[in-house]
Amino acid sequence: MAKFFAVTIILIAVASAVPIVMHTWEAPADISTHGALIDEQMSETMLEAGISFLAAQIILAIFIWQFSNPGPDARIKTFPGGAKGLVIAALVLVGAEVMALGIFGTKAWAAQYFTPPAADAMAVQVQAGQFAFYFRYPGLDGRFGPIHPDLINEGSQNFYGLDPDHDQDSKDDIVAAEMAIPVNKEIHLLMHSKDVGHSFYVPELRVQQDFVPGLDVSLHFTATKVGKYEIVCTQLCGLGHYNMKAYLEVMSQADFDDWLKKEAAMQ
């Protein structure tokens, strides 16, 4: 029984590692400028976690195999080095490992969160609401008109509560249900929630950030590859949460300009 158990543990451990080694289910390829650091950090962690996982399971299995149902003469032995050795090993090896991960990981985090967006970054506002994202472009004046929550009316598609009749800045604001951005251009994303908590997650862009109702937060990123990607909500926001998504279209500057004109005409 014990030997069978030992073999089972090893089989499970190896089988668990196979899809990871084979890259069967992986995150979609990175399309951002900051994502490489995250990916590097990820594979580094995977290596260390994988080794710890396999080593612990296999040693556990070997000991179970070896020390179960011993003969009547068997004597209790102590692991070489005893507890002190193990504690030192844990402190040194694991301590060094996690410190390394922690310090190295700070770089990836800092690259995204501690550096301000470039001065010429393009501002786009995203508003999350149950259960759709709407994106706002400031238009030619480069300024977003003020939001009047009491004017929000989804039936007539005033999702932001804009008042272009009275607010000069709102007149040329463009509100769209999908997000188009020019490739290789830094985007400064201003995040606003209309109702409850939501999140902005684009796996390809290596960004995920919650919307905080009552507190506008911002993100910045640069997409490097033209294509159509999905923006999904990852913060439970109600019954339509599973269906809260929008498309991100990364396009050439020329295509983007055309798109913006087309959207402006639809306002």
Binding site: G129, F131, A132, E154, G155, Q157, L239, G240, N243
Partner: peptide, 12 residues
């Protein structure tokens, strides 16, 4: 009575 869809905000 106004009617809206709780999943698709534009439905009214």
């Amino acid at each position: 009575v106004p009617v809206k869809c709780n999943i698709h905000p534009w439905m009214h």
